[in-house]
Design a protein around this nucleic acid. Structure first.
Length: 286
DNA sequence: AAGGTCCTCAACCGCCCTACA
DNA sequence: TTGTAGGGCGGTTGAGGACCT
C-alpha cells in the first residue's frame, strides 16, 4: 500500500519517495555545500529536488553528512549504547550524540536488531537450549552496583539524584529520576555543566571497582562508608534525617534489576566469545 | 532450483517542541 | 495568549538481501 506524503498536515502530491538515486544525492550534497545546513524547506527548491524537506534533511543527516561513520558497531560502542539506553531510554538522538559519527537512526536500528527485546528472547532461548543439551552451564554471578563518590557529592550538595532511586523533599515538591537527570546532564541543561558532565561520564564509564570498593563489597556493603550507607539503604525509613529527602524504593515494575542482569549476560556474550564457543558453540545472528 | 521466511536498515509518518508574529 | 510554521524526534514500514526448507 503506497504511503501518503504528509508534511505538517499538508498533503503533498507528486513528491518523489523511496530510495535516493546517486543524482539526487549529488544535488543535495551540492546544495548543502553551497548554502549550508538548515532552512530545510528551501532545500528542495534550491537543489532542484522533487523531495519533501524532511526527506532531504533525513537523507543528509543519516547518510550524506561527511563525518558519518558506517559499518559495524564496535564493542565499545555497543557497551556504551547499552549503558546509555539504561539511563536514557529510547532517546536515540541523545545516545547518538555520544557516539561520534553515528546517527540516531543507526543507533535505533542497531538497538532494535542487535540489542532489543527480540534478540534478548533469542539469546535466552539459545541459553536454555544449550542448558537442555547438557552443555556446561554458564553461571551469571550478580554484580552489585556501587554508588560513585561523584553522585554522593552531588547528593550532599543538593543534587537530589541517585541511581535507581526517586528523591523528593518532604513536602513532595521536587521529584526526579535518574533518567531525567541524566538527560539534563547530557543535553547540558545544567548551568555548571562542563565539570558535572565530566564527572558524570567518569562515574558512568567507570566500570572498574577500586580496591576499597571490592573490600566493601566483600564485607557486604555497597561501596559507601557507614555514614553514607545510612542515608541510602533502601529498606530504611522514608525520611533521611540529614538531607531531609524522602527516599523511595524503586518500584519493582521498572524491573531495573532484570534489565541489568540481562545486560551483564549480553555483555559477557560480547566479551567472552571463546567461552561461548567452547561451551555451547557460537551464537548465530548476534 | 525455487519458494518461503527472516533480518537489516533506509526512509517515511505523525507527533511534539520552539520560535515568532 | 493564540495560531502558524519549521525543526527535530521516536516509532514504524517495507524493499531487498540472506538464509532455510
Amino acid at each position: 500500500m503506497p504511503r501518503m506524503a504528509a508534511d505538517h498536515g499538508h498533503r503533498l502530491y507528486g513528491v518523489r519517495k523511496g530510495a535516493w538515486s546517486e543524482e539526487e544525492d549529488a544535488l543535495l550534497r551540492e546544495c548543502i555545500d553551497k548554502y549550508g545546513e538548515g532552512k530545510w524547506h528551501q532545500v528542495p527548491l534550491k537543489a532542484g529536488l522533487n523531495r519533501c524537506r524532511k526527506s532531504c534533511r533525513l537523507r543528509w543527516l543519516n547518510y550524506l553528512k561527511p563525518n558519518i561513520k558506517r559499518g559495524e558497531f564496535s564493542m565499545d560502542e555497543a557497551d556504551l549504547i547499552i549503558r546509555l539506553h539504561k539511563l536514557l531510554g529510547n532517546r536515540w538522538s541523545l545516545i547518538a550524540g555520544r557516539l561520534p559519527g553515528r546517527t540516531a537512526n543507526d543507533v535505533k536500528n542497531y538497538w532494535n536488531t542487535h540489542l532489543g527485546k527480540k534478540t534478548m528472547l533469542r539469546l535466552q532461548a539459545l541459553m536454555n537450549s544449550a542448558a537442555a543439551a547438557d552443555y556446561q552451564t554458564k553461571v551469571i554471578k550478580p554484580r552489585p552496583r556501587t554508588f560513585s563518590k561523584t553522585l554522593v557529592q552531588c547528593m550532599r550538595s543538593g543534587q537530589q539524584q541517585q541511581q535507581g532511586l526517586h528523591f523528593c523533599t518532604n513536602n513532595g515538591s521536587k521529584s526526579s529520576t535518574i533518567k531525567d537527570d541524566a538527560v539534563d546532564l547530557i543535553s547540558g541543561k545544567d548551568d555548571d555543566g562542563v565539570d558535572k558532565q565530566i564527572q558524570w561520564w567518569k562515574s558512568l564509564l567507570d566500570d572498574q571497582l577500586s580496591d576499597q570498593e571490592l573490600a566493601a563489597l566483600a564485607s557486604g556493603s555497597c561501596g559507601l562508608d557507614e555514614e553514607e550507607q545510612a542515608g541510602y539503604e533502601l529498606p530504611q525509613p522514608p525520611v533521611d534525617d540529614r538531607s531531609g529527602y524522602k527516599i523511595y524504593e524503586e518500584r519493582p515494575k521498572t524491573d531495573f534489576t532484570n534489565e541489568l542482569s540481562f545486560d551483564i549476560e549480553l555483555w559477557d556474550c560480547f566479551t567472552d566469545d571463546d567461552q561461548w564457543q567452547t561451551s555451547s558453540g557460537p551464537i548465530q545472528g548476534l
